[in-house]
């Protein structure tokens, strides 16, 4: 009994007929594949290009020009955030940077954490921190009170 060879088709993949449409799901799984990774890839390039100007501009203004960080205090922030332009700048920069960075770290975790459990929990930690940073940052920009 044990000497007989296994049937040739055991475990062989189901082959579709030639020229049938490309199958994007594994046979037997209902969940369709999404284009999430493609969209994330495109987002990294678009947000990266915008952040190039937003972040480098922010660094030049806050750290280089006119005394740099030495002149930054509550009054300086109040002066800047009196203008909707700088509030919008900071809000867009916050959202784009946090999402860009979160997706970057997601990639890093996927690359280096080998155990599925480790990957899962590291990403949960990452998404929790991203949610906190986005919520707190947005709240601060919208509710800033110069007369505090």
């Amino acid at each position: 009994m044990a000497t007989t060879a296994a049937p040739a088709d055991r475990g062989a993949p189901e082959l579709a007929a030639p020229r049938s449409p490309r199958r994007r799901t594994k046979p037997g799984t209902a969940k369709a594949r999404s284009n999430f990774e493609l969209h994330a890839w495109v987002f990294m390039r678009i947000s990266g290009l915008l952040l190039f100007f937003l972040v480098l501009g922010h660094l030049v203004i806050m750290n280089v020009l006119d005394g740099g960080v030495q002149r930054v205090n509550f009054g300086f922030v109040a002066g800047r955030w009196a203008s909707p332009f700088w509030r919008t700048w900071d809000l867009v920069m916050l959202l784009l940077a946090e999402l860009h960075g979160t997706n970057g770290l997601r990639t890093v975790i996927n690359d280096y954490a080998e155990r599925a459990q480790t990957r899962f929990w590291l990403k949960m930690l990452l998404y929790t921190s991203a949610f906190l940073v986005v919520t707190l940052g947005t709240l601060v920009i919208f509710t800033f009170d110069p007369d505090l």
């Binding site: 940052g137 601060v140 509710t143 505090l148």
Partner: peptide, 8 residues
């Protein structure tokens, strides 16, 4: 973001 949140 945490240090800037201190303005609140």
């Amino acid at each position: 973001v945490l240090d800037t949140a201190l303005v609140r």
